[in-house]
Amino acid sequence: MLASSKNSIHPAAAHLTICPLANMGFNCCPGCGMGRSIIALLHGNLSLSLKLHWFGIPALMILSYRILVLMRLQLITSRINKLQRKEEEDV
């Protein structure tokens, strides 16, 4: 069963959650609000982001870094594969 909770910043905005702590009735969860914090940050609302969860900014930085590393790895791998196919065609 999913718990329904009210957003403390926007009390009219209720949402469903899969958070096990919220589903057990706890109001304080270390991760709740992080997604909303990242979304607020992406919309340029730094104060709301910090109000929702203080770790939103570092989390977004970590996620962005990881995405860039994976994109770079994919680019390098595709270039290597392209060179290998070209060598095979030349032989």
Score class of each variant (00 low, 15 high):
residue 31 G to W: 07
residue 63 L to K: 13
residue 29 C to W: 11
residue 75 L to W: 12
residue 24 M to E: 09
residue 38 I to Y: 03
residue 60 L to C: 01
residue 25 G to W: 07
residue 4 S to D: 04
residue 65 Y to M: 12
residue 9 I to F: 06
residue 51 K to Y: 06
residue 67 I to H: 04
residue 49 S to V: 02
residue 77 T to C: 09
residue 35 G to H: 02
residue 71 M to L: 13
residue 36 R to T: 00
residue 35 G to R: 01
residue 74 Q to P: 10
residue 34 M to S: 08
residue 83 L to N: 11
residue 57 I to T: 02
residue 90 D to G: 05
residue 82 K to P: 05
residue 70 L to Y: 09
residue 10 H to K: 12
residue 23 N to A: 10
residue 71 M to F: 07
residue 1 M to L: 11
residue 28 C to S: 15
residue 5 S to A: 15
residue 22 A to H: 05
residue 22 A to W: 01
residue 41 L to D: 00
residue 14 A to M: 12
residue 86 K to L: 09
residue 64 S to P: 01
residue 55 F to P: 00
residue 46 L to F: 01
residue 71 M to T: 08
residue 29 C to H: 11
residue 83 L to G: 05
residue 37 S to Q: 02
residue 7 N to I: 01
residue 89 E to W: 13
residue 84 Q to I: 06
residue 35 G to M: 03
residue 76 I to F: 07
residue 1 M to F: 09
residue 63 L to P: 00
residue 86 K to D: 06
residue 48 L to G: 00
residue 72 R to D: 02
residue 19 C to A: 07
residue 49 S to N: 04
residue 10 H to P: 00
residue 20 P to K: 11
residue 75 L to R: 09
residue 25 G to E: 08
residue 86 K to F: 05
residue 17 T to W: 06
residue 21 L to I: 09
residue 68 L to V: 14
residue 26 F to S: 08
residue 66 R to W: 13
residue 7 N to A: 03
residue 14 A to N: 08
residue 9 I to P: 01
residue 32 C to M: 03
residue 82 K to Q: 14
residue 56 G to N: 01
residue 53 H to N: 14
residue 6 K to H: 11
residue 13 A to S: 09
residue 18 I to S: 07
residue 17 T to Q: 08
residue 33 G to Q: 01
residue 29 C to K: 10
residue 72 R to K: 14
residue 49 S to T: 03
residue 73 L to Y: 12
residue 15 H to K: 09
residue 30 P to E: 07
residue 2 L to E: 12
residue 21 L to A: 13
residue 68 L to I: 15
residue 47 S to A: 07
residue 34 M to W: 00
residue 57 I to R: 03
residue 71 M to K: 10
residue 6 K to D: 05
residue 2 L to S: 14
residue 40 A to E: 06
residue 79 R to K: 13
residue 6 K to S: 14
residue 29 C to I: 10
residue 65 Y to G: 10
residue 42 L to P: 05
residue 41 L to G: 02
residue 62 I to R: 05
residue 27 N to F: 07
residue 54 W to K: 10
residue 9 I to M: 07
residue 25 G to K: 07
residue 30 P to A: 11
residue 87 E to S: 14
residue 43 H to I: 08
residue 71 M to Y: 06
residue 86 K to S: 08
residue 31 G to I: 07
residue 21 L to K: 14
residue 60 L to W: 03
residue 14 A to V: 12
residue 27 N to C: 11
residue 7 N to V: 02
residue 41 L to V: 01
residue 3 A to L: 04
residue 43 H to D: 15
